[in-house]
């Protein structure tokens, strides 16, 4: 299906307030009879404008419009034309106000059901926001990051996780070059990460979830659990390349991640590099794939 040619009346720019910031969003209206469902695109924070990398969200919006869906794409605060500043995306500090504001734009357009397409940080925001969106009906999540912390902390976290506590103590105990501020910060980060893991491990054990890896963020577990309990279809998609590290995380814990037991929660590993939409073929593949999934999951009428 070729994306629709959108006319002036089919799209509208909307500024909305989220916390202290003003967010720019583009609302796309259906080019065929509306289903009453609006899809929110939550980006992974790649910069640029609301159109996404190589205008992937503009294309998805046009494709969904052709299928009867409303949609909204936005620029996180500190990105594009929105106000504010952002230094780094911390996975366990999602931008909820922006997701809620975007949902309200769709309700204002007459949508009585909301769906979300989220990528990376956007997927994390979606999972957490879901609890406060009673009209949510479906979620398509690309590269959902399971770990907490900043993007730049993900790899150091993996190193710390893989190291037994005894070895960790042995190494950190030497405190080499502790006078160097950079090295000192590294030590502090490592200790903080390790403490967080030990605390989370104890917590999961207390809750009868002793086999779940402690680095899986609690927001992810409770968010997916809530979605599953509500019977909301959730589709998780990961890429199949060395540069899709979150896929390795997902596969490592999939058997222990209880929310995945719900029939409505499905997952898929595509034989491509998905993270960051790094190739044109991946983008060409994803646009109809996403449209078809929403089409199938939320049929018209």
């Amino acid at each position: 299906m070729s994306p629709a040619t959108l006319a002036v009346a089919d799209e509208a720019v909307r500024w909305f307030e989220a916390g202290d910031e003003t967010i720019l969003a583009v609302v796309t209206r259906p080019t065929v009879p509306a289903r009453g469902v609006g899809v929110i695109f939550l980006n992974g924070g790649h910069g640029g404008s609301s159109s996404g990398k190589n205008r992937i969200y503009t294309r998805m919006a046009a494709d969904l419009a052709d299928r009867g869906f409303h949609s909204v794409r936005l620029e996180w605060h500190g990105i594009g034309d929105s106000t504010g500043a952002v230094d780094e995306y911390i996975m366990d500090e999602p931008f909820l106000d922006e997701a809620f504001g975007a949902a309200q734009l769709l309700r204002d357009e007459g949508c009585d059901r909301i769906a979300i397409y989220g990528e990376c940080f956007g997927a994390r925001t979606a999972v957490v926001a879901a609890a406060d969106m009673p009209d949510l009906v479906a979620m398509y999540l690309v590269t959902l990051v399971l770990r907490d912390g900043a993007v730049s902390e993900q790899n150091p976290q993996r190193l710390v996780d893989d190291m037994p506590t005894s070895e960790f103590v042995k190494r950190i105990g030497k405190l080499r070059h502790i006078g160097d501020p950079k090295r000192r910060r590294l030590y502090i980060d490592a200790v903080r990460n390790k403490s967080r893991l030990l605390w989370q491990k104890a917590r999961y054990r207390r809750e009868g979830n002793s086999t779940l890896a402690p680095w899986v963020g609690r927001q992810v577990v409770s968010g997916l659990e809530g979605l599953g309990a509500r019977g909301i279809p959730v589709h998780l998609v990961y890429g199949d390349s060395y540069w899709d590290p979150h896929r390795f995380d997902f596969e490592e814990v999939a058997d222990d991640l209880k929310p995945l037991r719900y029939d409505t929660t499905t997952s898929q590993v595509l034989d491509e590099m998905i993270a960051g939409y790094r190739t044109l073929p991946v983008q060409d593949h994803l646009v109809p794939l996403v449209g078809e999934w929403f089409d199938r999951t939320l049929p018209a009428g």
Partner: peptide
């Protein structure tokens, strides 16, 4: 090199 989420904010 387009900005990625791992980069510092543009303002900085």
């Amino acid at each position: 090199f387009a900005p990625g989420p791992w980069k510092r904010g543009e303002e900085l």
